[in-house]
Design a protein around this nucleic acid. Structure first.
Lengths: 147, 147
DNA sequence: TTAAGTGCAAAGGCTTTGCAGCATA
DNA sequence: TATGCTGCAAAGCCTTTGCACTTAA
């Protein structure tokens, strides 16, 4: 298990806010999770590594990270928000309803779609999020078995 | 202002559950809103027409309607859930961040995209929801003015 | 050093649940 | 009429806020 330290660029990105032990931990956890954690889960993982961290710090940090543009907030599956370190390249998410696995993907049709809607509806689109749910190959097999 | 009554097909769709005064009112409100109400807003509108209705009834009814497949639940904009009477044809939503207007649209690229992802990721997709946010022509103008 | 950040606990929203009375099929 | 539904109130979550203490720059 790699445990890279957050580097100086992270400090710079804090834009004057302190990069505290707690914030560093939270950023590490978000990054290491490959981006599919909700606030509650993040709190639990943080707690496992720092007994004294409180939920308030988690929520405050998430809000700060969002504000600074360090993490993206996504609504996948049910109603929960998931967080991930902001990436330069756009990608969308696919959630397996069987095992909860989250897959990231990119597809040229997506950009096509955005452009088309922008043109046809006369909207300037600022945020586009695609929520796909379904069953991965493995869970699809199991589903069939259960019927 | 048209105020069509819910017809018998609605009764049938209740699948054995009572079509009570409250449920009829809620379904009417959801339908008349053209589908972009969250639970709180629905409660307020219901309250305006029936002083005595409580939030519990609204939430219970929404859960029932979802269960029966009478309404669709969508996550648009912030984190709120919006409800609309289920329609046969698929459509997606576009929210204006300026005025809150919700536009429904369909675009062939969307189906293309779903098919492509299904094929490329080996997923069986069961739910697909596209969340677009931006500024409509009118609000885009105002934005420019404010800068 | 000192302003910003933290933990704790309490408060705030929204949603669900338990229960006695009411209304629909 | 009898079960299911409702309203009320209380409880449950998740998230935010206030305050005194701590800590990073």
């Amino acid at each position: 298990m790699m445990k890279r330290e957050l580097n100086n660029s992270q400090t710079i990105q804090m834009q004057g806010h302190f990069l505290t032990t707690q914030r560093r931990l939270l950023l590490e956890l978000i990054r290491d999770s490959e981006g599919h954690l909700d606030a509650k889960e993040l709190y639990q993982r943080a707690r496992a590594r720092d007994e004294s961290i409180g939920p308030a710090t988690v929520y405050r940090s998430l809000n700060l990270f969002k504000e600074l543009g360090l993490v993206d907030e996504m609504r996948l599956g049910k109603l929960r928000c998931y967080y991930e370190i902001k990436k330069s390249s756009e990608h969308q998410h696919l959630v397996c309803q069987g095992c909860g696995k989250v897959i990231e993907f990119q597809n040229p049709h997506f950009q096509e779609l955005i452009k088309a809607v922008q043109r046809e509806q006369g909207f300037k689109i600022t945020r586009a999020e695609l929520c796909l749910e379904g069953y991965c190959e493995h869970c699809e097999q199991e589903e069939k078995g259960d019927d």
